[in-house]
């Protein structure tokens, strides 16, 4: 199976999934569950952006939640101090996360594996600690309030769904261009990629910046939805959720993080009544999937659907 065809199949499957989601409000207009779906879409964007970095480029960053937080503060601070309208705030959040990602990505270029994980984790913690301790500017753990953009949950649902669709389409276009080839080549063997003429510094930094910008975009959008931004957005546990969703759904596929995000978040809200063991279950699932089914749920689906071919 060529990479091209694989990617197209994943894109079609993701589009179908998004279409089904788009039809949901016809049957269900419960405010609480619409909110759950909004948060799921937020995580789906985060997980997809992290997957670009970890699944396709092999850069295992532990800072996706920090970039969402940067995006959220970008929007909230510019709204609080300069009164900018939401669309501009969104842009500011996205661009500031993207720029910081560009710089960080360039700096950590040479680091791999545990070294990269430790550096990005430290970065994430520093950003969060600064946000939570710079009380004069950010009001610390109290959080910065924001004027809500609008209040109708159905509208919010469609806003987030469009944002997710936009991000997925962007990723699809990026990955099916030559960039997709180069990123995967870098993930598999950086030295071989360099031998083949791939501009390592450029593509790795670009992947980091794009991924961070997408995370910042999700964070900024979420800030307007929640109308409050706190340092909690950047907690390592949030990154843990993003990693879990991606691993359960299927790392390195376009659809995996989306499936993972909706599945994990929606079921965990569902199971809340059963006593809150959902996080235990999902953490256990992450370990089981990483240990036994490395392609995630999507990989299981593909294996189940694949025609049994005779060995050549």
């Amino acid at each position: 199976m060529s990479g091209d065809i694989r990617l197209r199949r994943e894109f079609i499957a993701t589009s179908l999934l998004l279409l089904v989601l788009a039809l949901l409000p016809l049957a269900m207009r419960d405010v609480y569950w619409l909110g759950v779906l909004v948060v799921s879409a937020y995580f789906a964007i985060l997980a997809s952006s992290w997957n670009l970095l970890a699944g396709f480029t092999g850069q295992f960053s532990l800072a996706p939640a920090a970039f969402a937080m940067i995006g959220a503060y970008g929007a909230a601070l510019s709204a609080a101090y300069y009164n900018v309208p939401p669309l501009i705030g969104l842009l500011i959040g996205t661009v500031s996360a993207g720029l910081i990602g560009l710089v960080l990505g360039r700096i950590v270029m040479r680091l791999r594996g545990p070294y990269l994980a430790l550096t990005t984790l430290s970065f994430a913690e520093i950003v969060r600690l600064v946000a939570s301790n710079s009380i004069n500017i950010t009001r610390g753990d109290l959080g910065l309030p924001l004027e809500p953009w609008f209040n109708d949950r159905v509208i919010w649902f469609y806003v987030f769904l469009s944002a997710l669709t936009f991000v997925i389409c962007g990723l699809y276009l990026l990955l099916r261009s030559q960039a997709g080839l180069f990123l995967e080549a870098i993930r598999d063997d950086e030295i071989a990629a360099a031998r083949s003429g791939v501009r390592i510094v450029f593509w790795k930094t670009a992947a980091f910046a794009i991924s961070s910008a997408a995370a910042g975009f999700a964070g900024a959008l979420y800030a307007y939805f929640a109308s409050l931004v706190t340092p909690e957005l950047g907690l390592v546990q949030q990154t843990g959720l993003v990693v879990s969703m991606t691993v359960i759904g299927g790392m390195g596929s376009l659809i995996g993080p989306v499936v993972g995000a909706f599945l994990v978040y929606v079921t965990s809200e569902w199971l809340r009544d059963v006593g809150g063991w959902q996080l235990v279950i999902f953490a256990a699932l992450v370990i089981v999937f990483a240990r036994l089914f490395r392609a995630g749920l999507w990989g299981l689906v593909i294996t189940a659907l694949a025609p049994r071919r005779k060995l050549a």
Binding site: G113, Q237, S244, V286, I287, A290
Partner: peptide, 11 residues
Amino acid sequence: AVIVTFGLSLL
């Protein structure tokens, strides 16, 4: 290694 130990921490 990162995923499994991270997952274990959450668990």
